[in-house]
Design a protein around this nucleic acid. Sequence first.
DNA 1: ATGCCGGGCGAAGCCCGA
Length: 261
Amino acid sequence: MIRVAAWNVNSVRQRIGHLVGWLKSFRPDVALLQELKCTTDGFPRLEVEDLGYNLAIVGQKTYNGVAILSRHPMTVEAERLPGAADDEQARYVEALIQHEKKVLRVASIYLPNGNPADSEKFTYKLAWLERLRRHAVALLSHEEPLVLGGDYNVVPTDDDVYDPEGWKDDALCRPESRAAFRRIVNLGLVDAYRALHSEPHRYTFWDYQAGRWQKDEGLRIDHLLLSPQAADLLTAADIDRGPRKQEKPSDHTPVWCELDL
DNA sequence: ATGCCGGGCGAAGCCCGA
């Protein structure tokens, strides 16, 4: 059994207390983190290593930044998403996890937001999604357990947003974003949360503004996509709302799954 | 129609996020 979680922490240095507490209590085998908002050297490495985690960090000053934390042996496979040599943004890290003579491949993904939807930022987002699709084709050819997890910045359907009408022109909900996300899923990946939960309006993000958390008006934009070989091992998945309830929280909360690996 | 909140940077106010 291996527990994998994805969490956009919105600054790992602001959230180190929350992160340590959550690692101690929830004890994920593998944690996929996004929005570190610090350089690789600036990551609070000792606090996490003291809990028994190996680290793979791809940081960047001020923006972005992703990491993989693993209680099991880990080898880094990629620190950039292939397909654009000039892309300097720290949004992808991929590793192999060794667990009792078996191997799990994971990636921590921080997709571009893409707003406003009439700008070059949206073009970059759609190109990033297409690069991810192409890379997923290559990864799926390994026919191994694989988890592509993180902040996709895509609301898959109107059931995944509190106000579909109000958000329909946003880059997170635009049909182009949803179609590009579906093209990835349709390669044969399984949304771990949706595989086990059909109820609408379950969220992983709530804006800090306008009391969105108190009103439970959020978005489901953090996803764990499983290869068929991982989906066959899926025993549980859920959203852990605990961290979002705390003082000075991230605006995201973790999504997790368990694989009978 | 816009800001609301919050983080980084850097020391006031702007950029960015979703």
